[in-house]
């Protein structure tokens, strides 16, 4: 039995977002949307987090930060790209300092579209992420068991 579905904790990082999606991520914690119903907490610390919610596209400087944060998260972990910028770069695609979507740097598992992404779709993305977490945990267990058999 895996418990990730019931208690996914989120770390939010603003890679180069314009704040629009950031605020919607924060708003999804608040009374109207209240993601804590699903046991979701915004931890603010990679070492406690299960889901890394990235808003905004990636630039030279935030790339390293993202990699650092990802490195410090314990397995299983899921990357969620929130908003169009994080998905593809949105209107900033052509900017000289924008590398594109988050998937240029990290393996993204869930894409949440929208400019700005609406809280409803963010919650939907989080719940998708939970399923992927469970899957990853199951895979890891299988892999470890497999290694034991060999």
């Amino acid at each position: 039995m895996a418990w990730f579905k019931r208690s996914p904790w989120i770390l939010h990082y603003n890679a180069t977002s314009c704040n629009g999606c950031d605020i919607e991520v924060i708003v999804s914690l608040t009374p109207l949307y209240d993601v804590e119903r699903f046991g979701i907490i915004n931890t603010g610390n990679p070492k406690h987090a299960d889901i890394l919610a990235v808003t905004g596209s990636v630039n030279e400087k935030s790339r390293q930060v993202l990699i650092n944060l990802y490195e410090q998260m314990p397995e299983p972990k899921v990357i969620m790209a929130v908003g169009l910028c994080a998905v593809s770069g949105c209107v900033f695609q052509d900017c000289y300092n924008v590398m594109g979507g988050v998937d240029k740097v990290l393996p993204v598992d869930v894409y949440v579209p929208g400019c700005a992404a609406r809280p409803e779709s963010i919650i939907d993305g989080m719940l998708k992420a939970c399923e992927i977490l469970e899957e990853k945990y199951a895979n890891r267990n299988k892999r470890e068991k497999g290694e034991e058999h060999e």
Binding site: M1, W3, R6, S7, Y137
Partner: peptide, 28 residues
Amino acid sequence: SARFQGRYGPPVLQPFYDVFKLMQKQRI
């Protein structure tokens, strides 16, 4: 607390879920 804040809040057993989940996480 959630009710005080005008939210619905997590299930009452949430702390247990959290602990069970943490137990299953990788050790870093």
